[in-house]
Design a protein around this nucleic acid. Structure first.
Length: 154
DNA sequence: GCCAACGTTGGC
DNA sequence: GCCAACGTTGGC
């Protein structure tokens, strides 16, 4: 089983938005970075779990857990000229961008803040803590996943 | 709003 | 293929 961290700006899509979504499921739209795209397209598997992370906000951090319920398929938002994620270079015959579907599994009552993560030596190598890191989809090791589950029961 | 860090673009 | 310029991200 693989573990991931998915970043979202709560102003654009928050965990509350996911909680209100039909079946609490969403397509993880709008990833427009090739490295992140490759993870979505090639690595994320059915049943994998991911931290839902809020970025670019007052209190950045992990706000919940989601599960992958559908593996990669083309990102329809790239085909929509009215979407902020529109990319004319992505076509249905040669899609450039992909999504997975995720379902809300658990919403933390209290977020695990970025500052919390930083204060734990065991998490020092987490990709999300790396300086200058800009990936919006990133791997989490099973050790990191387990550690976070054990230390923050929320 | 600042700014460091990084990705992307495009001229050559 | 190099690399400068530019745009974006994201924490603070």
């Amino acid at each position: 089983m693989g573990y991931w961290l998915l970043k979202s700006e709560p102003d654009s899509f928050s965990i509350d938005d996911l909680a209100r979504s039909k079946q609490q499921v969403t397509a993880w739209e709008g990833v427009r970075n090739y490295q992140a795209r490759n993870l979505i397209r090639d690595k994320i598997q059915l049943g994998d779990e991911a931290f839902f992370y809020h970025s670019s906000c007052a209190e950045p951090g992990i706000v919940g857990i989601v599960q992958v319920i559908r593996t990669a398929y083309p990102d329809a938002s790239a085909f929509d000229p009215l979407s902020p994620y529109y990319d004319p270079k992505s076509t249905s015959s040669a899609p450039r961008w992909f999504v997975v579907d995720v379902k809300l599994k658990h919403r933390y009552a209290v977020p695990v803040l970025l500052s919390d993560l930083r204060s734990h030596e065991a998490l020092r190598d987490m990709v999300v803590l790396r300086r200058g890191n800009r990936l919006s989809v990133m791997p989490v090791t099973s050790a990191e996943w387990r550690y976070i589950q054990n230390h923050w029961r929320r």
